[in-house]
């Protein structure tokens, strides 16, 4: 029985740790499939985390908090879109700047909330959580955002493969020039994709500050935005593979704690590098087959598009 609960708790903890990665990664995946590389995920997540926590604390309403987080992420993405799509700034440099900007701005706006305790999302939804039997308690910890993340994977995958707009988005990521020559609205599609990426990153941030570790602390994303970026490549730009990647990363995060519980002394630093090693291995594997690499990576990724007159 106790072992069952332990396994269940590992599964639940893995799912919870995977959720922010999945949300942020999915947003970035869509942006990259349209050909835009936004390295500002970390910054957008932080803004989402800060805004979500603040609005929730002020209003007492978690849903409002989540919406504020998405709005904050979208606003950050809008800045990025203006600079890279309209003013044709370099995407890599702008993305890095966006992250640095997000770290600073979130620290500033989040200052009053630092260290303020707050109930977790699950505890808010299920007031009786603390008194439930252990097994049920574990299951109840799977808050709605976990399910939202998986629903989003399903929706994004369906959108990309099965809809006209999804096809157009992939086409724009393949070659903006050709898409333009065929009359596709390149910039409009890219703008939408970047804004979606921002909203998802904001939501991912809120998942951290409202559900995963319900609090606000400066730089609390601790590099998860970068992991999400790596995951997109790991997943070779495919939504369902992103799930596999996020679960792997989530599990490794959990394993660092669980290994100690089992009395295994693995260096946490070593464990933390595992996912990155896995990403590199996957990159090497997909690069071995040029056909597959060509099919996987959006050909126009990171290339600015300048419509001729």
């Amino acid at each position: 029985m106790a072992e069952g609960v332990l396994i269940l708790s590992i599964v639940v903890a893995t799912l919870r740790a995977a959720t922010p990665l999945l949300l942020a990664g999915l947003g970035e995946l869509v942006a990259e499939r349209s050909g835009v590389l936004n390295l500002g995920v970390e910054g957008m997540m932080l803004m989402g985390a800060a805004a979500g926590f603040a609005v929730r604390a002020l209003s007492g309403n978690a849903v409002l908090g989540l919406m504020a987080a998405m709005l904050a992420g979208t606003a950050m993405a809008a800045v990025f879109a203006l600079l890279t799509l309209r003013l044709l700034a370099n995407q890599v440099a702008t993305g890095l700047a966006l992250t640095i900007f997000g770290i600073g701005l979130s620290a500033l706006t989040g200052l009053p909330w630092a260290g303020v305790p707050a109930p977790g999302l699950a505890a808010t939804i299920w007031p009786g959580l603390a008194h439930a039997p252990p097994a049920l308690q574990q299951v109840l910890l799977l808050d709605p955002l976990v399910w939202v993340a998986f629903a989003c994977v399903f929706a994004v995958d369906w959108f990309l493969r099965r809809t006209r707009a999804g096809l157009a988005l992939r086409a724009v990521g393949e070659s903006a020039e050709v898409a333009h020559a065929l009359g596709t609205k390149v910039l409009r599609i890219r703008l939408a994709a970047v804004l979606f990426g921002g909203a998802m990153a904001g939501l991912a941030g809120a998942d951290l500050s409202l559900a995963y570790t319900p609090m606000w602390a400066e730089n609390m994303t601790a590099g998860r935005g970068w992991i999400a970026l790596a995951l997109v490549v790991f997943a070779t730009w495919k939504p369902w593979r992103l799930v596999a990647g996020a679960l792997l990363f989530g599990f490794v995060t959990i394993a660092q704690f669980q290994a100690e519980a089992f009395g295994l002394s693995l260096s946490p630093d070593l464990l933390a590098t595992l996912p990155y090693l896995a990403t590199i291995v996957v990159l090497v594997l997909i690069s071995r087959d040029s056909t597959r690499l060509r099919l996987a990576a959006p050909a126009a990724l990171g290339k600015p598009f300048r419509p001729t007159d």
């Binding site: 096809l167 992939r170 086409a171 050709v178 898409a179 065929l182 596709t184 060509r294 050909a299």
Partner: peptide, 17 residues
């Protein structure tokens, strides 16, 4: 004016607008 990694049908669908 073709998207190399898309299929013929996908290319034509995009070109039809």
């Amino acid at each position: 004016s073709q998207f190399e990694t898309l299929t013929v049908a996908e290319n034509i669908a995009l070109g039809l607008g």
